[in-house]
């Protein structure tokens, strides 16, 4: 949260403003005029729902006695609820594997595309980015087809070698099935951000490093990667937030993988089920809030461990 303390060139117009207090008032007014419309939306669709969810989560609806204030009972219930805990454990485990995998591939691709400047490289850049333009729902639908026994090519391909096709929709392999879907979906987006950051690096730095006898690998590892560390941290934070909220892909694949993915597979799916299938909005809100708490803790823990790097926040 130190973006605001970055060094700034002395501003010329600040002095002119101090001529009269009236001008100063005007600046306050204009500032709020520009920020105001967003502020209204921000209050209405972020702050208000957040507070309301917190409020809802402190109540319980019972068949007898109606709705009553229970303070943190819903949270106690959530953190002892095997459904919530197994879902939370799944998304944490999944994040620990999926995020490093995606970042490593995205970084490798970005470094390659930064070094290779052929027409084919430009074409590859577009193709790798392509899945970002695909809704995650459609991505999951497409991979669901590829995994399925009836439609997918896996049976044929493995049949050529006389082997049984792996079933990525079975409970043993669903972790890898989902891992592949999210990797396919997001690597391109991360790659583009890292590539854009690499393109912004001053090339004279590389030349200086070469003069000092650094090879290509050393330049990549010692110069390029440290210089784009802020972009890396940014995408790590975003992928962490996104992955912990995992919903769309398992929700879509559960139609195909009946029995493998339950309605409590991830905390978000569990909250959705509680709120919209069982009309238990109080407990659903508590689960959402508990998940939000987990996201906050994970993100701040991550930012704390990387605080020595120049951070984007």
């Amino acid at each position: 949260m130190t973006l605001l303390t970055e060094k700034r060139a002395p501003r010329a117009h600040k002095e002119t403003h101090k001529i009269r207090g009236k001008v100063h008032l005007r600046e306050h007014l204009m500032g709020w005029l520009f920020v105001g419309p967003f502020g209204v939306v921000f209050l209405a669709f972020l702050i208000a729902p957040l507070l309301y969810a917190l409020y809802l989560s402190l109540f319980q609806k019972k068949l007898i006695g109606g709705t009553s204030f229970v303070l943190f009972d819903n949270y106690v219930k959530a953190f002892t609820d095997p459904s919530f805990l197994s879902g939370a454990w799944f998304v944490i485990r999944f994040s620990l594997v999926a995020i490093p995998l995606q970042i490593v591939i995205a970084l490798a691709m970005a470094l390659i595309l930064d070094a290779v400047t052929s027409l084919f490289a430009r074409f590859s850049r577009l193709i790798i980015f392509l899945p970002y333009a695909i809704p995650t729902v459609i991505g999951a639908v497409m991979w669901g087809f590829l995994y399925s026994k009836g439609f997918g090519p896996l049976t044929d391909i493995f049949g050529l070698f006389g082997a049984d096709a792996p079933d990525f929709l079975s409970s043993n392999l669903i972790f890898y099935g989902l891992l592949n879907v999210v990797t396919w979906q997001w690597v391109g987006y991360y790659m583009i951000i890292l590539y854009a950051a690499l393109q912004g690096v001053d090339p004279t730095l590389y030349e200086a490093a070469r003069m000092d006898g650094a090879g290509r690998w050393q330049i990549a590892l010692r110069i390029k990667i440290p210089l784009i560390a802020p972009a890396l941290i940014l995408i790590l934070v975003f992928s962490l937030i996104g992955t912990l909220q995992f919903f769309n892909e398992p929700q879509i694949l559960r139609y195909l993988a009946a029995g493998t993915i339950g309605s409590d597979f991830t905390p978000n799916m569990y909250a959705y089920q509680q709120a919209f299938s069982l009309a238990n909005f109080n407990y659903g809100s508590a689960i959402s809030f508990a998940l939000g708490g987990i996201v906050f803790i994970c993100v701040y823990a991550f930012l704390f461990f990387t605080r020595k790097r120049r951070s984007f926040l």
Partner: peptide
């Protein structure tokens, strides 16, 4: 440079970490 600018901007940045789906139920 308006009043409460730094505070409001910090709040907006903090909002980046709020899971969007946590807002859907309320």
């Amino acid at each position: 440079r308006f009043a409460a600018r730094r505070f409001s901007f910090a709040v907006v940045l903090g909002a980046l970490m709020v899971p969007a789906t946590a807002l859907v139920i309320p």
